[in-house]
Design a protein around this nucleic acid. Sequence first.
DNA 1: GCAAATCTTGACTGAACAACTGGAGTTTGT
DNA 2: ACAAACTCCAGTTGTTCAGTCAAGATTTGC
Lengths: 153, 153
Amino acid sequence: MKLSLRGEYALRALIVLGLNYEQDVVRIQTISEQQNIPKRFLEQILNDLRSAGILESKRGIAGGYRLKQSPDQITLASVIRYIEGPLAPVSCVSENFYERCSCPDEERCAIRSIMKEVREAIVRILEGVTLSVLCDRVRTLQGVHSNPLDYVI
Amino acid sequence: MKLSLRGEYALRALIVLGLNYEQDVVRIQTISEQQNIPKRFLEQILNDLRSAGILESKRGIAGGYRLKQSPDQITLASVIRYIEGPLAPVSCVSENFYERCSCPDEERCAIRSIMKEVREAIVRILEGVTLSVLCDRVRTLQGVHSNPLDYVI
DNA sequence: GCAAATCTTGACTGAACAACTGGAGTTTGT
DNA sequence: ACAAACTCCAGTTGTTCAGTCAAGATTTGC
């Protein structure tokens, strides 16, 4: 698993929206400025998260994005799977993106058996961390502020 | 961490050479045919491993490659770091390939703290697996053969 | 109804990387 | 000297990454 900038931006944006959960929608530009993410690029990413059913949007002059799912139902694993693809280091050990690899005997492949362990370890962590856990961690790391949009992630 | 074909080929080749440790050199072509790896590509990869000090080569008509280090001194972590780069999912949590990321406060970044855990888990596994462990696992998975070059990895 | 701000969609680009392929050169054993 | 092997450099093809741009659709305030 490798997190590209795209994935990192997605997580940063989700945290902003998570801290603002059940409030009004947040504008792309607000997130873009606050998190220093190129606006056009962020547009794409948020749209992808909307197609994934994680966000919902409101159009027009008072428009913006908002979480559709509850923060404690959104795991890092699911977000990263959606944005980046497989969590496993090789796709022949991936559950969700399995692809056969070129080795002659997959069942008895020693490399594969190690990579399965790696995959397990990664999944165990990322399935366990929800957006609400992440937001809590932000609050802990930064202390309590009055306005959630002030958080530096 | 994501293992590209290049990295997978490197590991497969190393296993062949590991099973043949302290024997004669093995020719590129032998490894290529046995493991179904494009010869020219494998050439490059073995050369890289030689520059890394992991392999040594012998030129000429009876030439080929051989492990330079002992199999129990070669960890998967070191091989993958050399061939692929950082093990960490983002380079701002990498020990060996650290790069600052774009978030405003790295020390208090919640994403970073999760990614550190992921990195730790990956490293713990891959530092613990040496080439000799891997070769043992191949022998276990496949039973004992007379000729090490017969192993299907 | 109109303007302004916002999201939506899709195409486009430039750089980097992956996975090879080719060819010329060098070393070595016989 | 010669052929089989490795070494080194260069180029190719295709894909992904990280954006950018343009044009369109939607909503709201006035």
